[in-house]
Amino acid sequence: MSRAGAGAWTEPGAFPIAPGIHRLPLPLRDDGLKGVNVYAIEDGDGVALIDGGWAIPEAFDVLAASLNSIGYRPGDVTRTVVTHAHIDHYTLAVRLRTEYGAPVAVGRGERDSLTWITGHGPRHGFQAAQLLTAGAPQLAEYMSRKDPAADPVAESWELPDVWLGEGEIKIGQRTLRVLETPGHTQGHIVLWLEDEELLFSGDQILPHITPSIGFESVPQPQPLVSFLDSLGRVRQLPDARLLPAHGPADARVHARIDELVEHHRRRLDQTRSAVARLASATAAEVAQELPWTRHERTFAELDLFNRTLAVTETRAHLAFLVHRGEVAASADDVVLYSVVA
């Protein structure tokens, strides 16, 4: 195991996964995740990338140095297959296309969000509206401020060249199976390399944290239902080594899926219990009753962005409980939840 795999997984470099496959950790800016893994796969005379990173100068510089260490340059990137359309995965892929012509592919389920961002904006408009219905007006105002009025559509947001659905893609001599795994986002995909027992999992399955649910430009109505269904589909595949977008690449897929399913089972119980204690409550009020992160922090200890994620995720768990008939939701502008007798 490399030094990066043993703990310092964000350490820059090109870390071998299999012959012709390397993990390239890239930095993030002002993000608790610290880094994102991009995977380089030999593709003829160049390399294809799984995920692109965030279009910030320091990430591009690290990508160039990491590629150089294995004999390539950014101009040798043949294409970028992006697992989902979040800023830390998608936007550097767009820069590589702009400067070097490398096509960008992403799951077809991201069409609504990317069409909204590139043609309408503001990027966080739907999140702000959801936060209002969740009883979090201050967080709604915060998310609205994240969209500059003069330029709501950043230059690094463009439509892809290819919308991917279920099927197979060839990269060099390898055949990867594309699986649509909505949940983290509507269009999230994972890529399964069956012969080598490898799964490029994006943010759908992460080794140390539970992926956020439902945070995207055009949200889906039942993100947790989709997320758990997607985990179930992947769990039916033969076990594989987990190649996540964040964290070391040393876990196994089945074991981690089982942990994530158990986490959400406990979280649904906690959410229902919180609603019962409060009798009638908004999603924001329920979120304040729950512990957050692996360190069991209180809601008040979170920064504004992570409070936004917390309320969004609580709203997804409440929607799941409504779907299951255990909790009722009012039809008010600010939705109130109560336990069904």
Rank of each mutant, 00 (worst) to 15 (best):
S2G: 04
P16R: 02
I17L: 14
G20A: 10
L24P: 02
L26I: 02
L28H: 10
R29G: 09
D31E: 14
G32V: 11
G32R: 13
K34A: 14
I41L: 14
E42G: 10
G44I: 12
V47A: 12
L49A: 03
D51T: 15
A55T: 01
I56S: 10
D61E: 12
S66P: 10
G71H: 11
T78R: 04
I87R: 12
D88C: 13
H89N: 04
V94L: 13
T98E: 05
A102Q: 03
A102W: 00
P103L: 14
P103T: 07
V104K: 02
A105P: 05
G107Q: 15
W116Y: 13
W116L: 11
H120N: 07
G121Y: 00
H124W: 06
A128M: 06
Q130V: 06
Q130R: 09
G135R: 05
E141M: 11
D151M: 00
V153S: 12
V153F: 07
E158D: 09
L159Q: 08
I169F: 02
I169V: 09
T175W: 00
L179A: 02
H184Q: 03
Q186R: 06
G187E: 15
V190Y: 03
V190D: 10
W192F: 15
E197L: 08
G202H: 04
D203K: 07
Q204T: 06
L206N: 00
I213M: 01
F215W: 14
S217E: 00
V218S: 01
L224A: 08
D229P: 04
S230V: 05
R233M: 03
L237R: 00
A240E: 06
R241D: 01
A245S: 09
H246Q: 07
P248M: 09
V253D: 02
H254C: 04
H254E: 04
A255R: 02
E259F: 01
E259S: 02
T271R: 01
S273E: 14
V275F: 04
L278F: 12
T282P: 04
A283D: 05
Q288P: 02
E289L: 08
L290S: 09
L290Y: 11
T293K: 06
H295W: 07
E301N: 03
D303A: 10
L304T: 00
L304Y: 12
N306V: 04
L309Y: 15
A310F: 15
A319L: 06
L321Y: 13
S330Q: 08
V340I: 15
